[in-house]
Amino acid sequence: MDKPKIPLSQIVYGRFIYWLCITAAVICTIGPVVAIASPDNNFMNPHYLFSAIWEGKNPEMIWLQMGNGFPGGNFWLHNLSTGDGLIQFGLAIGCSSASVALMATAIAYFREKPRAYKWALLSLWIAVMIILSALGTYQT
């Protein structure tokens, strides 16, 4: 029996997620090496970080004690050479992967025959939700 053809949109989404996921995981594996190689070149010195976490301190207190407070979720933009900046960059790739994949999927939906406009629009809607969330919109 002939297997049904997997829709192009679905293949596109899977491929994008797969490679972005690997990229994020690779960066987040290399990040700790950079952090440990030069402990002072971090927002949070690894020598003191884990004991602060283990003492049950809240995130605000930890960021404050380790430096000058939390520099914002997108602090990696200007601090890629630091260990935690690099890890945050990897996390940002992983946490935005679905938005990039959904935009590519929307294009695939527009190109499919018959054209799946409503699915393309829903894909774009979710991609926009992720982008708004990533930009810190509506943050309490």
Binding site: C28, G31, F50, G73, G83
Partner: peptide, 28 residues
């Protein structure tokens, strides 16, 4: 879950609740 949590996780990232060096080893 992969797609939806890309929206959910950002408020935690922006609040500093995700400590980079603590999270990193889990991903690989």
């Amino acid at each position: 879950i992969g797609m939806g949590n890309c929206i959910t996780v950002w408020p935690y990232l922006h609040a500093g609740a995700i400590i980079p060096l603590f999270v990193a080893p889990w991903l690989a």
